[in-house]
């Protein structure tokens, strides 16, 4: 029991550090593409320290406190039911039959908590961003859910660990090759989930200040930033597990999650921003059809 708890702490620490470093690396890469020098790779850590070092803070009520707590609970919840490394005692986290549902629920749990918290902040921009975020979230949920259903039909299981186990062997037993339609639908949904351009209208820098966390400062913001590391890492590891054969060693995990994240980054730097109605139409169009096709194909 204690050993398991220690392992969990270790694996959360691993994903936090890797998630934050990944954002730092990507910022650096994007800066180099722009022809800039860019912030140092450890900049996200400095930002978190600075935010937690603010001496004063203001609150707007109980829900305002709970918003970041829910957000980080969503991030941790997502992460704790995904095996980071397949077959490893230390980094396998929890697993049980049907945990893929729990994971999918946790992905959206944080957003809902944040919506309540920032709603109490009372800033009009928060409310706008929350409305946009929830609308867009329900849209990309559709292709992602269809894709997961297709996987469940394919592997006849609802457990992430079993799905990973079924993909072991050679590279050609990865879902990417055995069920390409589901993979495509899920990757497109991931673009929305990672909130890079063209789906970054929720945060919408330069338009509505900073989205839901407009009123959050100090350690609230530090918590949200920490969660960004955990949640980013958890989502990437989930996609790696479901579609790219999981990982058995830490270097393999790092390389795979980095490559998956770069899909988002490449699309993000290449395309301008969608409006909310455009992105909803987009997600409910071709990606949903691909998802439906993936389900039907495995049903037959």
């Amino acid at each position: 029991m204690i050993v398991k708890a220690l392992y969990i702490v270790l694996s959360v620490a691993l994903v936090t550090v890797w998630g934050l470093t990944l954002t730092g690396i990507v910022r650096k890469i994007v800066a180099r593409v722009h022809g800039r020098i860019g912030p140092p790779v450890w900049q996200p850590f400095v930002d978190i320290i600075k935010n937690n070092a603010k001496r004063t803070g203001i609150s707007h009520g109980v829900m305002f406190y709970l918003g970041p707590v829910f957000r980080i609970a969503g991030g941790m919840g997502t992460f704790l039911f995904i095996p980071v490394l397949f077959g490893s005692d230390m980094f396998s986290n929890f697993s049980f039959a049907g945990d893929v549902f729990l994971v999918m629920y946790f992905i959206f749990f944080g957003q809902l908590g944040m919506a309540l918290g920032s709603g109490e902040g009372g800033h009009p921009y928060s409310a706008i961003a929350v409305a946009r975020g929830l609308a867009q979230m329900s849209a990309f949920e559709v292709p992602f859910a269809l894709s997961v259903i297709s996987l469940a039909v394919q592997y006849d299981t609802f457990s992430v660990s079993s799905i990973v186990a079924a993909q072991q062997g050679s590279i050609f037993s990865w879902t990417m090759f055995t069920n390409p339609l589901a993979t495509i639908a899920a990757i497109i949904a991931m673009l929305g989930m990672n909130m890079h351009s063209p789906f970054d209208v929720v945060i919408a820098p330069q338009e509505i200040p900073i989205g839901p966390p407009t009123e959050y400062q100090g350690s609230f913001l530090g918590m949200l930033h920490t969660n960004r590391g955990i949640f980013n890492g958890a989502k990437l590891i989930l996609f790696m597990n479901l579609y790219f054969g999981g990982a058995t060693t830490i270097p393999e995990m790092i390389v795979k999650t980095f490559c998956i994240y770069m899909i988002s980054v490449f699309v993000g730097v290449s395309f301008p921003r969608f409006r909310t109605d455009q992105s909803i139409r987009f997600f409910l169009g071709i990606p949903t059809l691909i998802g439906v096709a993936a389900v039907i194909l495995y049903w037959l």
Binding site: R36, G38, P39, V46, D47, P205, P209, P213
Partner: peptide, 21 residues
């Protein structure tokens, strides 16, 4: 811009006074 690039000092524009220092 690329020529002066203050992001290398870890500086960033922040649109809300709550988060800016």
């Amino acid at each position: 811009t690329a020529r002066f690039d203050i992001s290398r000092y870890g500086m960033a524009p922040r649109p809300t006074p709550r988060q800016a220092s």
